[in-house]
Design a protein around this nucleic acid. Structure first.
Length: 504
RNA sequence: GGCGCAUUCGUCUAGCGGUCCAGGACAUCGCCCUCUCAAGGCGGAGAUCACGGGUUCGAAUCCCGUAUGCGCUACCA
């Protein structure tokens, strides 16, 4: 602990900004949390500062196994590298709050000694009863400061009886506290509205209000970006900073990201996690771009940015202050755009893993052998490239390119103003024509089949639609002739034969 | 209930006293392209800038109310 202190008090102060992302490991991280992290990361990179990951795990009861790994995986997936944190350490560690317990005790004691805090012996039962009564009397539920005014003798008696205690911060009873926020300006709070919050729990760990503040100070955090839900307790924090004699960092209370229900994103209700996006085949660079635009805008038209462009363009000043609903449709559009901009080879590289997933995880049907043929898959995906919105949907959309048997109902084979007989006839003629071709190439297929259409006195859509279904089992596919070329002569002929057979 | 924050097209937003009877994007609608589905191109509709008062020669932009939404009100973060 002393060692940590020495580091913290050391005068290596450069003026580079230091920003932190400090999630608590109570579950997976939703997209709104990442958005705030992303703002911090972007500014750290923009300014040549540091980005620190700290785990706020002082709530032992709610800590979830695997959560920290989820954070670091998510950060990595989105391309946000960490300068100091649990995995890599750093000069101001440890980066788990439970490991900094002694520090919080030290400063709680300091506050106790300076008269800025006091021991509170109230039992949860008393607190609970008190609150219920306050609410019943339409009073704001607030700690009644019962223990603040205990005499030393009374304290001695209570403690002699073996009572446990917490430490509460003694808020000034009168006056006002001004919270200066870089985004919102000055926000003024009446001290009498703020109660004496617990800064040290019975189990010897500090709650958020003390722990984050001690860590931010010791870790030399310069810019504090956090959700706007913290505005209410910010005056408490500035009072504690003052009581400790520490400078207050720059506050940026950023707006929340809301769900479609207009409620704050919550892990258990309406929020997708980063890994949901990964599973569905969203590109991290698209998600990154999308997230950066949620509550921040560069100008009135630019919205597609590479990560480097974002780093260059990002400024904290332009963060908006009103909370917004994230629009999954727009993300989907942006993802499609990023996919279309991918070089084909990279698209193949990144899509194959999704296609090779087990069938029940969204991969190709189990009957198709893995690993997939790369050359063939490249030809297949070339046709689907501009049609994909997510990598995850590729398997479904291209499965007929791989399947031995395709299955479809006859009504999608028979086109408008046609019946089984005319469809069968068209297919028979198609078969004869295709059999006569010496080269299986899309431009030749197209030229020949167009001639056939006129010869049959049918519409393009009728004949091509019939062949499309016969050959793919689908009504929506890539352009027919390119598709037939990739499928190959044998597969096409066999499927056309089957269609003819099914028509009687 | 108390306190706080917010409020520009359905959604994300630009706007920081005059250039805005408000610009862009997604979604939506129509047309073009066309063998289906996409992609792309063109165009339309969509916001009396929440409402009401001020300040000002002039307000989406500044101030004050009201309404609505959201947040906080734990030995959770």
């Amino acid at each position: 602990m002393t060692q940590i202190d020495n580091h913290a008090e050391g005068s290596d102060a450069t003026n580079a900004p230091r920003l932190r992302f400090a999630p608590s490991p109570t579950g997976f991280l939703h997209i709104g949390a990442f958005r705030t992290a992303l703002f911090s990361w972007l500014y750290a990179r923009h300014s040549g500062g540091k980005f620190i990951l700290r785990i706020e795990d002082t709530d032992l009861a709610r800590t979830v196994e695997g959560a920290v790994e989820d954070f670091t995986d998510g950060l990595r997936w989105l391309g946000m590298d960490v300068d100091e944190g649990p995995d890599i350490g750093g000069p101001y560690g440890p980066y788990y709050q439970v490991q900094r317990k002694a520090l919080y005790q030290q400063y709680a004691n300091q506050l106790l000694e300076s008269g800025h805090a006091y021991r509170c012996y109230c039992t949860p039962e008393r607190l609970d009863a008190m609150r219920k009564e306050q609410i019943a009397n339409k009073l704001p539920p607030r700690y009644d400061r019962h223990c603040r005014y205990l005499s030393p003798e009374e304290r001695a008696t209570i403690e002699a009886s073996g009572a446990t205690w917490v430490v509460r911060f003694a808020m000034p009873l009168e006056g006002e506290t001004v919270v200066h926020d870089e985004l919102h300006g000055d926000m003024v709070f009446k001290n009498s509205d703020i109660d004496d919050t617990v800064i040290m729990k019975t189990n010897g760990l500090a709650p958020y209000h003390l722990a984050h503040l001690v860590d931010d100070h010791l870790m030399k955090i310069t810019h504090v970006l956090r959700g706007e839900e913290w505005i209410s307790s910010a005056p408490r924090h500035v009072q504690i900073y003052q009581a400790l004699g520490w400078p207050v960092p720059l506050f940026y209370h950023v707006p929340n990201v809301l769900g479609k229900d207009k409620k704050k994103l919550s892990k258990r209700r309406n929020a997708p996690s980063w890994s949901d996006y990964k599973k569905q085949g969203y590109l991290p660079e698209a998600v990154f771009n999308f997230l950066a635009l949620l509550g921040w805008a560069y100008d009135d038209k630019t919205e597609i940015f590479t990560q480097d462009e974002l780093i260059k363009a990002f400024t904290l000043k332009k963060i908006g202050i009103s909370s917004g609903i994230y629009d999954p449709d727009k993300l989907l559009w942006m993802n499609g755009l990023y996919i279309r901009n991918l070089p084909l080879a990279e698209l193949v590289e990144r899509t194959i893993p999704y296609m090779e997933l087990a069938e029940d995880e969204g991969g190709l049907p189990a009957s198709i052998v893995r690993p997939l043929d790369r050359a063939y898959t490249t030809r297949v995906l070339a046709l689907e490239h501009e049609r994909l919105k997510t990598l995850g949907e590729a398997a479904h959309v291209v499965s007929f390119f791989y399947e031995k048997e395709i299955d479809y109902s006859l009504d999608i084979l028979i086109q408008k103003k046609m019946d089984a007989a005319s469809t069968r006839e068209a297919l028979l003629q198609t078969r004869t024509l295709l059999n006569s071709l010496s080269t299986w190439e899309h431009s030749i297929l197209e030229a020949q089949l167009r001639e056939l259409v006129t010869k049959l006195g049918l519409k393009n859509g009728q004949v091509f639609g019939t062949i499309r279904t016969a050959v793919s089992g689908r009504t929506a596919t890539p352009p027919l002739f390119e598709m037939m070329e990739v499928l190959g002569r044998d597969v096409c002929m066999q499927r056309i034969d089957q269609a003819i057979a099914r028509l009687g």
